[in-house]
Amino acid sequence: MTDSAPILELTDVEVRYGKHVALHDVTTTVGGGAVGLLGPNGAGKSSLIKMLLGLVPLHKGRATLLGRKVSRRASTLRRRVGYMPERDAAFPDMTGFQATWYAGRLSGMPDADARRRAHEVLLFAGMEEARYRMVSTYSTGMRQRIKLAQALVHDPDLLFLDEPTNGLDPQGRAEMLGLVRTLSRDKGIHVVLSSHLLRDVEEVCTSVVVMRQGTVVRSATVAELQAATEDACQVTVAGPVEAFRAACERHGIPVMQTRDQHLQLGVSLAADTQPLFRAAEESEVIVRRLTPVRVSLEDALIDVLGGR
């Protein structure tokens, strides 16, 4: 998928909660950088992360993370991984600094290092003013930031972020995504971002893993995913639109949308555009503008998930 060494390799993975199968037949390889984990609610994104962290057992198959086999006793592996859970989670009766320091200590850091790092990551997460306040008094945005600081304190090589922008206002969301982008692009930390907000993934990630009903349906770079569905163009014409529309259909060009003088046609500009110009000539219209349609990740995802 990417040219870097894979951070995650899954082969025929199955995860169950009792009788309920949460993940099945999951086989994929994920390269480094920032990876988006996409899919509707209940697709198995969180279950996949929890399985990789060893929080839920692997029922069948094989999973390797950062080149090491995943198991429930993989404490060595967990020292190299940071996790920001989706749910509101905090160590009780602690200030922001104490909670971050404690997370570092639990990850095996010496006391002095954990203290220094706690201050550093809190500063990085923009919590310097609130670090001595009790976590229970924090707003939603602050709680998200403190969770990020706790996930980062031991300087992981790989960071799992489960819905990191949940409950954030637009400014908070932009700041959170900015932090994640910095970590991934400038600091060399691999990021796996699970989100149902496609714009978050689009802004941060270079590749995506699309999941549906407990299995991986597509694994590609964002560009690949968009290119795969980038087979439409927008045409602005001057002249009889209806005649042009009919001519396009005669030449086998699907007309997806029509609005005034603008038409969205199901033809890629990379392909042969001669039929389009022939249709224009026949219907005596002037093609004023011809642009490729930029497919959003949302469109691409709907395509992959079979929504249209």
Partner: peptide
């Protein structure tokens, strides 16, 4: 406070 998830995702 859901701290168990925080504890057990550590080594």
């Amino acid at each position: 406070t859901n701290a168990l998830e925080m504890y057990l995702s550590r080594p």
